[in-house]
């Protein structure tokens, strides 16, 4: 499953005013990985995702996806090339139904959004139903998305990201606001997506049991810089990582 390099980041930098949110970050991912980025609040995890997906543009450094330099690409082009993301705060279409939310992502992926004359209700039915089933949202299909529970909104967030049929998926705290059971279900789904269809996944997470339970490789960010990297065991034993982050909780 593992094979070639899918993502390569070279000395990436981003500052907001005087704050260095991303500091000389080098990063690499292989196809088929399931990895996590951890770090205290404000360590630069979300900024890192924002840089990789074109939400922010880097001050310097390079980003390669499948060997293509995407450093200054706009978000929609990066998405079309195969990177999708789910946001930390659920970022959905509150006045559309759950079904319509997901269908729209699929239609965009199928390049059918420019179609002016076929009713959208006749398109992408099978794909949408399937994806709602996979993410456990079938029963909420006709609900207006703004009325979903917090956990369901996060699941919808994931479903929209999957609707883009990415090769690389970024999940920014995918279980934030979820109950224990929901967290378990969601992470099992993430694991299955990784194992069964070989989707390469990078996530951030606050819950250490989730991180150590699912990620096969960890990267620790602190003040925008990578301070430790390796298997969960290696990171657990790393002194610097313990000091800045893990130590806080122990």
């Amino acid at each position: 499953m593992a094979g070639e390099v899918i993502l390569e980041v070279e000395s990436l930098n981003k500052a907001f005013g005087g704050l260095q949110a991303t500091h000389d970050v080098d990063y690499e991912m292989m196809t088929g990985e399931l990895s996590a980025i951890i770090g205290p609040n404000g360590a630069g995890k979300s900024t890192f995702f924002n840089l990789l997906t074109g939400y922010h543009t880097a001050d310097s450094g390079k980003i390669f996806f499948k060997g293509i330099n995407i450093t200054h690409w706009p978000p929609h082009k990066i998405t079309r090339l195969g990177i999708a993301r789910a946001f930390q705060v659920s970022n959905i279409y509150p006045r559309l139904t759950t079904y319509e939310n997901v269908r729209q992502a699929i239609l965009a992926q199928q390049k059918k959004t420019i179609n002016l004359f076929t009713p959208a209700s006749r398109l992408a039915r099978r794909e949408t139903t399937e994806l709602l089933e996979i993410t456990g949202l079938s029963e909420q299909s006709d609900m207006v998305a703004g009325n979903l529970s917090q956990g369901d909104k996060k699941r919808l967030e994931l479903a929209i990201a999957l609707g883009s049929r990415p090769e690389l998926l970024f999940l920014d705290e995918p279980t934030a606001g979820m109950s224990g059971e929901e967290t378990h279900d969601t992470m099992e789904l993430v694991k299955r997506l990784n194992r069964e269809i070989g989707l390469t996944i990078l996530f951030t997470e606050h819950d250490m049991s989730v991180v150590f339970g699912y990620a096969r490789r960890l990267t620790v960010l602190h003040q925008g810089a990578v301070i430790a990297e390796g298997t969960p065991e290696e990171v657990r034993d790393n002194e610097e990582a313990q000091r800045v982050y893990l130590g806080e909780e122990a």
């Binding site: 997906t53 939400y55 706009p74 978000p75 929609h76 998405t79 079309r80 999708a84 993301r85 946001f87 970022n91 959905i92 279409y93 509150p94 006045r95 559309l96 319509e100 269908r103 729209q104 992502a105 239609l107 965009a108 992926q109 059918k112 959004t113 420019i114 179609n115 002016l116 004359f117 076929t118 009713p119 959208a120 209700s121 398109l123 929209i160 609707g163 883009s164």
Partner: peptide, 24 residues
């Protein structure tokens, strides 16, 4: 009612998210 019409609704509801599903 077309996919284009729904794309307009998504731009109204959440233009940022719409960029991230691959829409210019």
């Amino acid at each position: 009612e077309s996919p284009f019409g729904y794309t307009m609704r998504t731009i109204r509801e959440n233009p940022d998210r719409t960029r991230f599903i691959g829409i210019n």
